[in-house]
Structures are given as structure tokens and as C-alpha cells.
Write a protein that binds this DNA or RNA. Sequence first.
DNA 1: TATTATTTTGGTCGAACGACCAAGGCAATT
DNA 2: AATTGCCTTGGTCGTTCGACCAAAATAATA
Lengths: 212, 212
Amino acid sequence: MGMPVETATQRGQQTRERLLRAATELIPVLGWSGVTTRKVAERAGLRPGLVHYHFPSVDDLLTEAALAFTRSALTGPLHLLDDAPDLASGIVALVEALDAYTGQDEASLLMVEAYLAATRDARLREGMAAALAEFRAAVRERLAGQVPDADSAAALLGAVLDGLILHRSLAPMPTTAATAAHLLRMIGLPTAAAEDPASPDEEPSSMREGES
Amino acid sequence: MGMPVETATQRGQQTRERLLRAATELIPVLGWSGVTTRKVAERAGLRPGLVHYHFPSVDDLLTEAALAFTRSALTGPLHLLDDAPDLASGIVALVEALDAYTGQDEASLLMVEAYLAATRDARLREGMAAALAEFRAAVRERLAGQVPDADSAAALLGAVLDGLILHRSLAPMPTTAATAAHLLRMIGLPTAAAEDPASPDEEPSSMREGES
DNA sequence: TATTATTTTGGTCGAACGACCAAGGCAATT
DNA sequence: AATTGCCTTGGTCGTTCGACCAAAATAATA
């Protein structure tokens, strides 16, 4: 009667987490439906049968892994906003963190995979919606009073960051100074006019676009 | 010896396009790897064997369908920018079109699926990168001279729109007036101060977030 | 140490998949 | 009307999948 609704011992917890970690690494590489019990087990260095002992189904494993990752990926960088001296430089730090984060590994695409999979799974959708709502609320709270429309600014900010993750996965553009300046303008923050490095009113000179 | 490198007759073209359309409709519903030859054939009202006559493999079918859709979805709305009296109202029209477009069906998620699938398929990646580059170039061209940094503004604009598509698939937020105003500010367009409908400097009153 | 509960193993089952093909049906051309 | 390709059919092949299970191994408890 294996039904580990709550795993008891420590070793079981460890293998459970190894499976979760393996799934987390595999989702962005193979795609949501490309992740199978056997692949997860192989990646984790375990036997395939283990998966169904620790998780009722593959979807349960994927859902739990995706939700855990998404929550940490959304709420994790928020401390950058708090640690910065002011809101503007906090946003800049956020964008720079995104820059380093996206290039590192393609793990960030896990979140996008989860968004899409949420279209087909009610439980996943609830969790993702909750995580996103939490992110927006947190950002809005930090924006309130300093920008014109904190509500939709927070929503837009989230959309931009995810959109950048998505677009950068296929056309690696360095998003740093100019991006941050644009985002600051977007949310209506009185950007300190001194440190805007984008020289304005200049025609696009080169046309390096579809780079390898 | 069936090798329709170039289909000849009209009927063959029709079935080919029926298969492409079926694949286009199915990708956002079942996910990229969830689309099978049999499902496509069933959706199109045809026999499963047909798929491999008109397309070398399933991936070829999916790739062609995704690229065709992506190209039209990216370049299609561009005429809104040209038809509008000025750039600002063109952007507004673009956002409103997105609003109507996303709610209509979930077809817009096809593009996101294609972005992710491009991670695993070199040919698809090339096509998607080219389509995205074309979109950015077209937008940049229309922005040049009117905004500070047309280059990254165009890239940002594309990212925002795709990010909105993605986020709206899970938390249906009406993106209209406030969104457009934010985007105009972002790209640095001197928004006609008269028609900014978002009342500034107001604290967020209600907290409707994770709506059904 | 003896006992009990938990964890792991190795394998089976039916179902669905992509790919493939030979035969038959069809339409445009001669 | 005959012929010549293009189009369609229905089916098979080997593979891989999720799910499941009885039994062995292991760790915790008494």
C-alpha cells in the first residue's frame, strides 16, 4: 500500500526532491509532454518505477515541479526591489538580473512551458494564476504612490519580463541599459534624466538583426 | 513514388491546406508534441496516411503551419500602424486589436508554442527568428525618428505584446486604455497629454486579482 | 536483536505513436 | 476514350509510453 500522501523518512524526501529537480531540469529541454517517467528517472539516476511511488502520476510530478519553480522565480527577484536605494535602480537591478538569469540556462523557459500547460490542466492553472497574482500584488505594492497607475504597471511589468524571456530564447539580445530606461518610462517613473544612456533622436544605423 | 516537392493539382493543394489548418488549430489545444498524425487527420476529416504523403514528417507539418501562422500574426497587424493618423493612435489600435484577438480563440498561443519548440528544432528556430526580425525591422522603421531609441523600442514592443498574450491566457485582464498609455510612455512617444485616460497619482483601491 | 513500516526494484500490460508501403481511385492530358 | 501520373486508402511494423504490481531490500522501531 504505497500512498505517500506525506512522506515520512528523510531518504524518501531526498529521492522525491531528486525527482522534482530532474523534472525541473528536463521540462525546458524536452517540453512539457516530452518529459516521461523513464527520462526523469534516468536523469535522476533512479529507477523508473520510483516515480509512481512518490507521485500519483507524471502530471502531478510536473505540476509540483513547475509550481515550485515558478513561485521561486517570480518572488525570488523581488528582494532586488527592496535592497535598492530607490525604486528606479531597483528596476534596473531587476532587468540586469534577468539578463544574467536568462543566459545562464534555459530553465527560465520552464515558466513559459507551465503557462502553456496550464491551458490544459485546471490544477496547474490555479497554481500558476495564484503565483502570478502574488507577483503582481507584490510589485504593485512597491509601486503604489510612486507611479501613476501601479495596478496595470505591475501587470505590464510582469508581461514584459516574461516576453523578454521568451524572445531572448530565440534571438539573444542583450537587454540592459536601454531596456531598463524604457521600462522606467513605461511605468511612469520620473527617470533621472542624467543617467539615460540611450542617445535619443538618432536613426538606426546598422541592421544586424537575424544573427546566428 | 510520392514526393510532392511541389504539389501540382488543385485538389492536392486543398487537402494540404486542410491539414495545415487542422494542425494550426490543434497546436494550441494539444501542445506541440501533443499533435499527432492521427489527430490532425481526424480534425481535418481525412485519413491518417495522408499526412505522410503531403509532408515528410509530422515535424515538417507543424513547422510549416507554425511559421505561416506566426508570419501572418506578426506582420498582419502592422497595417494598423500605417492606417492610423499618427503613430500614437496606431499603437493604441494595435493594443486594442490584441485585446480582441487574444480573447477570440487561443490560437495566439500557437506562436508561444512555436517559440518553445524552436528551442529543439534548428529549422523552426531559423524561421521564427527571421519572422521576429522582420517584425522588429518593420516596427523600427515606423518608429524611427519619432522616438528616442527605435531599435530597442521595437524589440521591447514585441516582447510586451507576446508577454501579454502569454499572461492573458491565464489571467484574462482587459488590456486597453491604460495599457496603451503605458506602452506609449515606454517607447518615448510624447503622449498627447489630453487623451491619457489613466487618472494618475491614485492609490490602488480594489484588489481584484486572481479572478476566475 | 526482532519486528514492522517504508522504500526500492524489475518487470508486465494495453494503448498510442511515427513511419512506411502497396494497392486502388481519380483527374487531367493526349 | 485511353493513358498517365497525382492522390488516397487502409493497414502493418517496431517503439515508447503511463500505469501498475508483487516481491525484495532497506531503515526505523521496539
